[in-house]
Design a protein around this nucleic acid. Structure first.
Lengths: 215, 215
DNA sequence: TTTTATATCACGGAAATCGGTGATAAAAGA
DNA sequence: TCTTTTATCACCGATTTCCGTGATATAAAA
């Protein structure tokens, strides 16, 4: 890295943000332009300072207001020349997939060593992408498992009924709430059971909980 | 802080560890003796270097092998003169309570600002304890809520049955598995429903999932 | 030692779920 | 336009759950 690069860091954990800043401020070739706690702050800055040359935005996934995925999409749409590196605790295949689809240039875990972080940054600034081996593996597994277990798509109504079922309402009560026949709800219940491959109410409830339908 | 203090930092997230190290190495009065990724590494070091004066151990809660709570207990038992500061993402009342019972000298969130971190360290090194306002609040709430909603204690058998219920087994199947009468399992089911204040199988399942009985 | 908690079993009836096999109309997609 | 999906409703029988009201023996606690 011979030239000087301008970067922005976004993370809602102040201490991690400070830590990252501290680590990177040791690098002479890196100039930290801004540190932010939300994606919106970053976007706001970029829009106001359109002419400033920013090379890289380092971001977490979990942030209030606007999360890492949305921030990535926005940056790549409005400022496609800016590279992005996601640094997160999460190793959820879904999120990682969303990020690759949003054209993030790299993804490393917060578990990563300092050297890997610097390595990732160097790679990205030089035009390559960087995804840690572990992340690549998660992505691969996700792609395979996706084929073996095709996404179970529930309709709006099915989701609605499932939610109520998991909330301990009986068929009759759900029918009353939705102004539908008891038989209709029974149909949904049966369809859900066979669609989701579960045996009973317990299975439906677990599915609902795991998919975060209750909150 | 006039004198020089010797501290040890333990956190399994390398980047956070690096960040923290980086922040603290700016402080002239602080000398970082060791950084470790597990509690056992810290203890091993302390045992070998019995005569070295260590003032403070900064630790995360979630670590492999030996977590922050266990590390705290061990340190306070074997090296009671060493102060401890817990820096964690978690704000679970249970963990925090355990830590206060293990005589940790301070607890701050990873969301805390750098200034709060330094403030906490200074306080602790000077002999005070430091718990951030947010943490104090969580502790208070926990103490109150404990009285208002007494812990629902399930017996071994009840837990066992509940687990199987949530795993979609019918009463008869559970009875067969545990070599008990179908009536017995029915009793457990009824007791569980009234004990946990839920209405049906869905409620039982949700409770089981939320308590992490399935894994 | 007396009381309480735990673990076990039993009956009966009402209510709900489960499983199969339908139908119809409207909306969406090819 | 034709086909598929979605949303709705219906019947029936078997199984399961839910609810109340019990009992007994043993272990733990007061």
């Amino acid at each position: 890295m011979s030239a000087t690069y301008s970067i922005i860091i976004a993370d809602d954990h102040a201490m991690f943000l400070d830590g990252l800043t501290s680590i990177l401020s040791e690098e002479k070739s890196i100039k930290i332009i801004l540190t932010a706690k939300t994606g919106t702050q970053v976007l706001k800055y970029l829009r106001i300072n359109k002419d400033e040359k920013i090379d890289l935005v380092i971001t977490d996934i979990n942030m209030p207001e606007m999360d890492g995925v949305a921030l990535n999409q926005a940056i790549k749409f409005e400022f496609p020349q800016i590279k992005t590196l996601v640094v997160s605790m999460l190793e959820e295949a879904k999120k990682i997939k969303q990020l690759t689809e949003a054209n993030a240039n790299g993804y490393i875990s917060k578990n990563a060593e300092k050297t890997e972080l610097l390595n990732a940054i160097t790679n990205i600034l030089e035009g390559d992408n960087y995804f840690s081996p572990r992340i690549k593996q998660v992505l691969m597994e996700a792609m395979f498992s996706e084929k073996s277990s095709p996404e179970i798509a529930l309709t709006k109504r099915e989701t609605e009924v499932l939610k109520l079922i998991a909330q301990e309402f009986t068929t009759q009560e759900i029918a009353d709430q939705l102004f539908l026949s008891k038989h209709t709800i029974e149909s949904y219940r049966k369809n859900l059971i066979s669609k989701l491959g579960v045996r009973n109410l317990a299975g439906l409830t677990r599915y609902a909980v795991e998919k975060g339908l209750l909150a």
